[in-house]
Design a protein around this nucleic acid. Structure first.
Length: 596
RNA sequence: GGUUCCGUAGCUCAGCUGGAUAGAGCAACAGCCUUCUAAGCUGUGGGUCCCAGGUUCGAAUCCUGGCGGAAUCACCA
C-alpha cells in the first residue's frame, strides 16, 4: 500500500481509538515535506485541531507519537502546525525493488470495450500546409490519446479533414489561372506547400481587386463580395456542390497533393489516426439531421428559408444551421460528424482537441445535440487549448506571419545535428544510427517545448531564440536516460547486474529519497494527466525526476560503490528512473535515444 | 457592449482541489571533468504573485470590484 494511504488510515484509527469524531477525508492533508525541513511527508494538522480541541503543537506531537508506531515511520517533528514524518528507508527500498524492472509501472490495463473514448485532433484545412499552431494541436491530441490509454481506456484517434468550402475553391481557381498545369513534383515542392502557394496567389490578387474597387468608390464589404475573383470562386463552389465532373476531378487531384504532403508531416511528427473523416462526407449527414429536427419541430425555418436552433432558453442566442440557399455551415457538418462517430464507435466520451477560439462553438454543438434528443450529447468534451503566439502577437497566415511546421521540424533536427557535432557527442556513431539519434533529439526538443506548457494557456514562441537543448528541455531528459543506459551497460561489462528483491537494510541519503519519491508519484501523475487532459503534468514530473537523478548521479557512486547492498539499491534506482523516464516520455510521444 | 479565459523574476514557464520563508530554466556572473556521458553539477544576483477590498488560523490559489491583455458573440471555418 502507498505510504500516504497507510498514514491516512492510521490517522483515522487515532481518532477512533480516542473516541473522537472521525475527520472528513479532505481534512487529512498529506503533502511532500518542503526541502528546508527535515522529513519526507507532512501531515497538515490545522484542519484536525478543531476535532482534537488541542493547540497545533500539542495535536502535532500527539499524532506524531501515534504515527511513529507505524513500521514505515522512523522519525517525526512538529513545526508550526505541520507534522513532518520521516519514512523508514526499508519502505523505499522495498518499493524500488518492486518496480525497477516493470515496463508497465503506473499504467492501467484496458478495462473493456465499454470504456471506448474517441479523441479528435489535427483537423486540418486542405488549403495550406500545417504551421506551429497545428503542431501544438497534433502533439497534444496524440499525447492525450496515449495518456488516456495508459489510464485504461480504449482510445480511438480520429481526424476530421476540412476538405470542402470556399477556401478550397480559391486554391483550385488560382491553380487554373496561374498554375501552368504544373504538379507539385514539377514545381519541386511538397503538395501541401504547393497548394498553399496557390492560396496565397489568390489572396494577393483578390486583395488587389478589392483595393481597386474601393479606390473606385465602392464600400469594402461590397468590394469583397463583388471582386471578380470571388465571384468566380463562389461559382466554382456551386459547381462543386452540384457535382460538376471537371471541378470535382480538380478538387480530388489537388486534395490528393495536400494529403501526400500532410502524410509526410504527420510521419515526421510521429502521429497517426485510427480513422479519418472528411467533411465532404459528413455534411450530408449533418443536413439530414437538420431536416429531421425541422420535421420534429425542434428547429425552425425562417421566411428566407434559413434554418435555426433557438438556444435562448439556455442563455444563448439563435444559431444558424442551414443558409437560406440550403447549403450547410460549419455547425451542420459537426453535427453530422458527431452522429456518424457515435454510430461508428459508440464511445463513452468524445474528446475534441480544438483551440480555445472555438469554446463557444462546442458549447453550442453539445446543446444542439441535446435539443435534438441525442442522449449522448453530454459525452462531448472540448479539450480547449491556448494559441501559440509570436512575440509580435498572433500568427496570421494571410499576412505570412506563420511558423511553418516542416521548416521548424527541419530546423530543429539541423540544430540537433550541429550541437552533436560541436560537442563531439556522436563521434563514435555513424550512418543511419547517427541520423536517428539526431532526429530523436531534435524532435524531443520541439515536442517537449510545446507539451511542457499547460494546454489551457496561450504560449509564446520566439523564432529568433531557437528552442533550447539545455535546462528544462526534452534533450535534458533524454540525456539523463542515455546516461542511465550507459551506466547499466558499464555495469554489465563489470559483471554487475541488479539483483532481484530488496537490497537489505541500508539508510538512504536525502537525494536518493527525493528520486524515489518522484518515482512513487508517477502513477498518480498519469491519473491526473488523464483527468485534466494535460501532458504538461507528466512533463513537469519527468523534469523534476531527471534533475534529481542528475544530482544523485553527480555525488553518489553506483558501480564504484563498495557496499553491495547500497550498490544494488542504486542500480535498481537507476534502472527504475530510466524506465519511468522512457515510459513517461513515451506518453508525450517522445522517443528516447540510448546514447547521445 | 455581453460572455469566457488570462495577468507570477528581464524572458519562457511551474506552483494540484487554500498550507510553512513563492520555485525552475534561459539570459548574466563565478566555480567543478586523471573517477559511472560536463546536452551535466554547484554557487551569486534577480519578486508589490496587476491593483483594492473580503472570507479564513492561513490566500499567488477562493469571492467581489477595478485595471490591462486575448478569444468569442457571422448566412467564415
Amino acid at each position: 500500500m502507498r505510504i500516504e494511504s497507510i498514514v491516512a488510515g492510521a490517522v483515522n484509527r487515532f481518532f477512533e481509538e480516542n473516541n473522537l469524531p472521525l475527520p472528513d477525508q479532505s481534512m487529512i492533508q498529506i503533502q511532500k515535506t518542503r526541502r528546508e525541513f527535515s522529513g519526507d511527508i507532512t501531515l497538515v494538522v490545522f484542519p484536525l485541531i478543531r476535532i482534537m480541541k488541542k493547540s497545533p503543537a500539542e495535536a502535532g506531537e500527539e499524532l506524531g507519537r501515534y504515527l511513529k508506531q507505524l513500521p514505515q515511520i522512523s522519525e517525526f517533528n512538529v513545526i508550526k502546525g505541520f507534522l513532518n514524518l520521516l519514512i523508514e528507508s526499508s519502505y523505499w527500498t522495498r518499493f524500488v525493488s518492486e518496480i525497477y524492472s516493470k515496463d508497465n509501472y503506473g499504467i492501467s490495463e484496458k478495462s473493456g470495450p465499454a470504456d471506448t473514448v474517441l479523441v479528435e485532433f489535427s483537423s486540418p484545412n486542405t488549403n495550406k500546409p500545417l504551421h506551429l499552431g497545428h503542431i501544438r494541436n497534433n502533439l497534444l491530441g496524440y499525447s492525450i490519446s496515449l495518456i488516456l490509454e495508459a489510464n485504461g481506456f480504449d482510445v480511438k484517434k480520429v481526424n476530421l479533414v476540412n476538405d470542402r468550402g470556399i477556401h478550397i475553391c480559391k486554391t483550385m481557381l488560382a491553380w487554373e489561372k496561374w498554375g501552368d498545369d504544373k504538379s507539385p513534383a514539377d514545381a519541386g515542392m511538397k503538395g501541401d506547400h504547393f497548394v498553399g502557394k496557390m492560396y496565397v496567389l489568390f489572396e494577393n490578387a483578390y486583395r488587389k481587386e478589392v483595393d481597386e474597387l474601393v479606390a473606385g468608390g465602392m464600400s469594402v464589404e461590397q468590394a469583397r463580395i463583388d471582386a471578380p475573383l470571388m465571384v468566380e470562386a463562389r461559382e466554382m463552389l456551386r459547381k462543386w456542390e452540384g457535382g460538376d465532373p471537371g471541378v470535382y476531378r480538380l478538387w480530388e487531384k489537388m486534395n490528393g497533393w495536400v494529403y501526400e504532403g500532410f502524410d509526410v508531416t504527420y510521419r515526421k511528427l510521429g502521429v497517426s489516426f485510427d480513422r479519418i473523416y472528411y467533411e465532404s462526407d459528413t455534411y450530408h449527414t449533418g443536413k439530414e439531421i437538420v431536416e429531421e429536427g425541422l420535421a420534429k419541430g425542434i428547429l425552425k425555418k425562417k421566411e428566407d428559408g434559413s434554418v435555426w436552433a433557438d438556444l435562448t432558453d439556455r442563455g444563448l442566442d439563435e444559431k444558424l444551421l442551414l443558409r437560406s440557399d440550403g447549403t450547410s455551415v460549419y455547425m451542420t457538418q459537426d453535427l453530422g460528424t458527431a452522429v456518424m462517430r457515435q454510430k461508428d464507435f459508440n464511445a463513452g466520451k468524445m474528446y475534441y482537441v480544438v483551440g480555445n477560439e472555438q469554446d463557444y462553438h462546442f458549447r453550442v454543438l453539445s446543446l444542439i445535440l441535446d435539443e435534438l434528443g441525442y442522449e449522448w450529447a453530454g459525452s462531448l468534451h472540448h479539450i480547449s487549448y491556448g494559441m501559440v503566439e509570436l512575440p509580435s502577437g498572433k500568427m496570421k497566415s494571410r499576412e505570412g506571419k506563420v511558423v511553418d511546421a516542416d521548416n521548424l521540424i527541419d530546423e530543429m533536427i539541423e540544430t540537433s545535428g550541429r550541437l552533436s557535432a560541436e560537442l563531439g557527442k556522436l563521434d563514435g556513431v555513424s550512418g543511419e544510427e547517427k541520423e536517428d539519434i539526431i532526429r530523436k533529439i531534435g524532435m524531443g526538443a520541439l515536442k517537449y517545448f510545446i507539451l511542457k506548457v499547460d494546454p489551457k494557456k496561450n504560449m509564446v514562441f520566439n523564432p529568433e531564440e531557437s528552442i533550447d537543448f539545455n535546462g528544462n528541455t526534452g534533450p535534458f531528459i533524454q540525456y539523463t536516460h542515455a546516461r542511465i543506459c550507459s551506466l547499466m551497460n558499464k555495469a554489465g561489462e563489470h559483471g554487475i547486474t541488479p539483483e532481484r528483491g530488496e537490497s537489505g537494510i541500508i539508510t538512504l541519503t536525502g537525494k536518493e529519497v527525493r528520486v524515489v519519491s518522484l518515482l512513487h508519484d508517477f502513477p498518480d501523475v498519469i491519473t491526473e494527466a488523464g483527468k485534466n487532459s494535460s501532458p504538461a503534468l507528466i512533463a513537469n514530473l519527468l523534469y523534476d525526476l531527471a534533475r534529481e537523478y542528475n544530482q544523485f548521479y553527480h555525488d553518489h557512486p553506483v558501480i564504484r560503490e563498495n557496499d553491495d547492498r547500497v550498490r544494488n539499491f542504486r542500480l535498481q534506482l537507476s534502472l527504475a528512473t530510466g524506465n519511468v523516464i522512457r515510459m513517461g516520455m513515451g506518453l508525450l510521444g517522445i522517443e528516447m535515444p540510448e546514447k547521445m
